[in-house]
Design a binder for these strands. Structure first.
Lengths: 223, 223
DNA sequence: ACATGATTGGAACGCCGTTCCAATATTGTG
DNA sequence: CACAATATTGGAACGGCGTTCCAATCATGT
């Protein structure tokens, strides 16, 4: 019916891997991990589940692709020329902020070991470790420690966000409720946890994350 | 709920939270995370799904309880008297080995932030940090960094195991396939990843994990 | 104008977690 | 000991999920 711009006669509403991934990201951002279903996606794209499967193998691949889009954006951001340490901190913070903005990335990343998104982070960190002069024989353990820490924090942030959402709480109320549980633990059995509970609601995730990175960097420097 | 008293006339095959959790652990160990379903559980316990729900609120609680049983076992193991550093290493290795033996614990732990299983680990680590003389104002960031690292490594090990199982590979073949993918990346774009690929199949997860712990401990010591 | 292959979209399948409820087992009371 | 009250069981049923299948439609080369 409608004739398009000269050359292409493709329908304007045709599906494509890219449109599907964009819609998936939107769905995940709006409703969290459980918000991405093939039915909700079909609805948003005004099509059926079958059509989506022509462009995407399965849900796992779709999640990884959505995750990769976010990670690629974060890892391709230009960085000011600085010392390798400062650059490593910037890379780590970039991932922290990306996961903070899209909590589902944290848990998806944790479920796609060795896949493209994780490799992007590994690559970026590894290059800086070489600039830092880390000996070849320590490269793997070092990059692996940093990556594990970043993924660990990211996974926990994702879990916190999901847990809070499941209970209908915001971050502050959720932390307060956890702190309350901890403070009611038997001080004889849990002296540390019960005493640290009061610090829980006021702490700064981002600052703590960075302190952890610095701890590891300090450890690397003093080898 | 279940009452136990002398002369009790309870049927021998009665359900209990404990029996359900034990059966869940068995199922998870046999078939991985996806092996735990209320139907499989009913079959194993020779009952119906409804009966299980009388003892357990939902699947999430069941998973957390199963996870907690494993973590409690690992964290209550007696430790030789030793320096705080050595004890911290032993605690960390205890969790690593527990997750290695029950990969599903790694991913369950990552999804239950602030819950009992995580608190057990936090408590054990925190006590040693106090023995180590970490100042109060650094306690939270320090324990949090160690916990994040441990959960991060655990989560990745869990994901590796699950991924490998999904593709029907053992750990060695899975690592080899990942290494192969990495080595085929464009060396111009991924110089680090493509060059480190060959070290992937031969590395020792457990030793690398411990090196990461030492890196953090060294960072703590040199504050 | 038509044949061919790419692409669509909706129906259907077999799972899942969860709920519901009638049936049964156990306990407390006269 | 009888019998009401309560605790516990187990299976049917519900809605939603990922995935598969396939007839219908679209785009393209001849």
């Amino acid at each position: 019916m409608a004739k398009k711009s000269p050359g292409s006669q493709k329908r304007e509403d045709s599906l494509s891997r890219e449109r599907i991934i964009d819609a998936s990201i939107a769905l995940l951002d709006e409703a969290g991990e459980s918000g991405l279903t093939f039915r909700a996606l079909s609805l948003k794209l005004a099509t059926g589940p079958g059509a989506i499967y022509w462009h995407v193998a399965n849900k796992s691949e779709l999640l990884t692709a959505a995750c990769d889009a976010i990670v690629a954006r974060a890892m391709n951001a230009p960085l000011a020329d600085a010392t390798p340490e400062a650059t490593l901190r910037a890379i780590a913070l970039g991932m922290f902020d990306a996961i903070d903005a899209h909590p589902w990335v944290g848990s998806t990343l944790a479920h796609a070991p060795g896949q493209l998104p994780a490799v992007r982070i590994l690559e970026r960190i590894g290059q800086q470790l070489r600039h830092l002069g880390v000996p070849r024989e320590f490269e793997w353990t070092t990059v692996s420690a940093l990556l594990s820490y970043i993924l660990g924090v990211g996974g926990q942030n994702a879990a916190n966000a999901q847990f809070a959402q499941a209970e209908g709480l915001n971050r502050t109320d959720f932390l307060a409720s956890v702190a309350n549980t901890w403070s009611e633990l038997d001080p004889a059995e849990y002296p540390f946890a019960s005493s640290i509970a009061k610090q829980l609601p006021d702490h700064d995730d981002r600052a703590d994350f960075l302190t952890g990175i610095d701890l590891i960097l300090k450890g690397i420097g003093s080898r």
